[in-house]
Design a protein around this nucleic acid. Structure first.
Lengths: 131, 131
DNA sequence: ATTTTTGTTATACTTAATATATAACAAAAA
DNA sequence: TTTTTGTTATATATTAAGTATAACAAAAAT
């Protein structure tokens, strides 16, 4: 799985790492049970500090996506281990809201945003039959 | 229009102001042509510094949502004045992607995310007939 | 059993972002 | 003419982000 960092971005490095790992899992490039590279190895690959990657892994653990086994490594949790809580659903909705609102105010129609959603799903290789 | 600041939030105050103004416009609580309160007045209302509100207004101007007339005030641009550029569409898609990906990885189905989208639209009073 | 690798913890430092405080300026509006 | 407005400038404090380095103890590999 390829992770690319944009040093100039307004998105913090640890957040870029977090997002790209999530995308990698969504795309099936990484599967539940898979081990992530060690924080030292990934940091060396990306040319960033160990603690930056470590922060990302812990963010992913807080989101319930990883399990970090102390002094051993980080494993991607399976969908069975993950319980989509009502709180998480609310959080997703909370994240969705400002993006959609900005799109609407900028002049995008509901259908255009709908279309963008499907493009994102397609990029993540998610089946959208019958939607 | 009511704006409420959460001082404890991880979202910066100026960003909270920006988002809530965008939501207000999306909901129709503020219409194109309307003048926003002066940076000093809004800052006093919210109990924050003048420059914090000023930063938010300039962020909104950079997004193409406001026009700031020097030493006069800020006006909400009309949809006609706003041209939804391909760059803006790409930006919206770019904003949408991590939110959707996280939802998927957490175990939400495409239909669940679809449903959340409609809830957000409903909250913003957007017509979604025939979608 | 020993060596290597691992996440963890701690300390120190730098830079940038966020937010406030205060003041002055010049143009617009009242 | 006075008040209000965004603008600009300076200064300060706090927090976030990122790096650097080191040491520790447990896990894994040899």
């Amino acid at each position: 799985m390829l992770i690319q960092i944009e040093p100039q971005s307004d998105v913090p490095i640890y957040e870029q790492v977090t997002r790209q790992i999530i995308e990698g899992i969504a795309k099936g490039e990484m599967k539940p049970g898979d081990m992530l590279p060690s924080v030292r190895n990934l940091a060396a690959d990306l040319g960033v500090n160990m603690h930056t990657v470590n922060k990302s892994y812990h963010e992913l653990e807080a989101k319930g996506i990883l399990t970090i086994r102390a002094k051993s490594g980080a494993i991607i949790r399976s969908a069975e281990e993950r319980t989509l809580t009502p709180e998480q659903l609310k959080q997703i909705e909370k994240n969705l809201k400002p993006v959609v609102a900005e799109g609407m105010v900028l002049g995008a129609t509901a259908n255009q945003i709908e279309h963008m959603m499907k493009k994102v799903f397609a990029d993540l290789q998610v089946l959208t039959e019958g939607m």
